[in-house]
Computed example of a mutant assay.
Amino acid sequence: MRTAVVIGTGLIGTSAALALAARGIAVHLADRDQGQVRTAAALGAGTEEAHQGRADLAIIAVPPAHVAAALADAIGRDLARAYVDVASVKGGPRRELDALGVDTKTYIGTHPMAGKEQSGPLAASADLFEGRPWVLTPTRETDHEVLNLALELVALCRAVPVVMDADAHDRAVALVSHTPQLVSSMVAARLEEADETAVRLCGQGIRDVTRIAASDPRMWVEILSANPGPVADVLTGIAADLEETVQALRGLQSADEAKRRGGAAGIEDVLRRGNAGRVRVPGKHGAAPTVYETVAVLISDQPGELARIFADAGRAGVNIEDVRIEHATGQQAGLVQLMVEPRAVTGLKAELRERGWALRQQ
Results as ranks from 00 to 15, higher is better:
A240C: 08
D241H: 10
E243L: 09
E243I: 05
E244Y: 08
L249C: 12
L249R: 09
D256R: 11
A258D: 10
G263A: 10
A265R: 13
A265G: 02
V270Q: 06
V270N: 05
V281F: 13
P282V: 10
G283H: 06
G283F: 10
K284L: 15
A288E: 14
A288F: 07
Y292S: 06
E293G: 13
E293I: 02
V297S: 08
L298W: 14
L298S: 09
I299Y: 03
D301A: 08
Q302P: 00
G304C: 11
L306E: 00
L306A: 03
A307V: 11
A307Y: 06
F310Y: 04
A311P: 00
A311H: 14
D312H: 11
V318H: 01
E321P: 03
E321R: 14
E321T: 03
D322N: 14
R324S: 15
I325H: 15
H327L: 11
A328T: 12
A328I: 08
Q332S: 10
Q332F: 13
G334Y: 03
L335K: 13
Q337E: 13
Q337S: 15
M339C: 10
P342I: 08
P342H: 11
P342C: 10
A344E: 09
G347M: 02
L348W: 00
A350Q: 04
E351G: 02
L352Q: 04
